[in-house]
């Protein structure tokens, strides 16, 4: 065996081992799929629903609505089952909301260069079309406290928008690396405007971020939003989590696990 072979083969093996560490996860149990044509956004959304093991139509299950569903659904469904089992609690319906329009349109509240401001219409789609469909076709809890929204980045921004402007829809918010910088921190203005009407409700909010999100826009608004919630909402169950050594993308999955853990702990 010559020197070239001695060098290349171990290097190739190391690289292949490193790259094979990306484990594929699929949603456990039964998954039902359908498409909703929205009147509010004029777009069609692919919806998937992962049912809990031993799903019973006579029970009432909480539902986790997952933004960026194409990315996150399987991972959320897998870890919901795992964590609900760990805590000995009833699992949830995991609802994947696929992309109907561009996420920079659906998840952003106003129109600025970074997004087109379609969140009000998308919120109408969720509250007037998707949730009624889920709660009529599945054994879903119809109360605010039985509904959870989970989003990352612009999805987290949308979750913060839902918290501040449409707080009657969801009682639980799992916000991962939320883009709170958006439109000169417009969500902070919404929060100030609506604080009096929502501060005394019960909320569960998880705020997650990566320690290496150093793009000059993520950390300070994140910290400020946490302080606001902590200081002004007496009925809130709040957790802030920073994933060390991870950036905006790589912190997402660890924060999903932490967020679901926090949710099931307090469910």
């Amino acid at each position: 065996m010559d020197t070239k072979t001695i060098i290349i083969i171990p290097l190739a093996i190391i690289l292949l081992l490193v790259m094979s560490c990306n484990k594929r996860i699929t949603a456990p149990g039964r998954v039902q799929q359908f498409t909703i044509q929205s009147m509010h956004t004029s777009a069609a959304y692919d919806i998937k629903v992962a049912l809990p093991e031993n799903y019973n139509g006579n029970k009432k299950y909480s539902a986790v609505y997952v933004l960026d569903g194409e990315d996150n659904f399987n991972f959320v469904a897998y870890h919901s089952k795992k964590l609900s089992d760990n805590y000995g609690k009833e699992n949830v319906l995991v609802v994947s909301i696929g992309y109907g329009r561009n996420r920079t349109l659906d998840y952003t509240p106003t129109s600025v260069p970074q997004g087109q401001g379609g969140a009000p219409a998308f919120m109408d789609f969720i509250s007037n079309e998707l949730i009624p469909r889920i709660e009529s076709d599945f054994a879903a809890d119809t109360s605010r406290t039985g509904r959870v929204i989970l989003g990352h980045s612009f999805g987290g921004l949308f979750g913060a928008y839902a918290f501040t402007k449409h707080n009657n829809v969801f009682g639980n918010y799992l916000l991962l690396s939320p883009s709170l910088w958006y439109d000169n921190e417009i969500v902070f203005q919404y929060e100030q405007e609506n604080r009096q009407s929502i501060r005394d409700k019960n909320h569960l909010v998880f705020l997650g971020i990566g320690q290496l999100e150093n793009s000059g826009r993520m950390q300070a608004p994140f910290q400020a939003f946490h302080l606001r919630l902590n200081d002004n909402y007496p009925g809130i169950k709040l957790r802030k989590n920073t994933v060390s050594q991870m950036d905006h993308v790589s912190s997402r999955n660890p924060n999903i696990i932490n967020a679901l853990d926090f949710y099931f702990q307090n469910k």
């Binding site: 690289l15 000169n184 921190e185 902070f188 203005q189 100030q192 320690q211 290496l212 150093n214 000059g216 826009r217 993520m218 950390q219 300070a220 608004p221 994140f222 910290q223 400020a224 302080l227 060390s244 050594q245």
Partner: peptide, 29 residues
């Protein structure tokens, strides 16, 4: 070693500072 300091200084809201320092392993090709 990574470090950065961010300040939210929007006149409409409260000012908030955030400083991050981190040591981490680094591996690559």
């Amino acid at each position: 070693y990574d470090t950065y300091h961010e300040t939210l200084d929007n006149p409409r809201f409260e000012r908030v500072d955030m400083k991050v320092e981190s040591w981490r392993p680094d591996m690559g090709i």
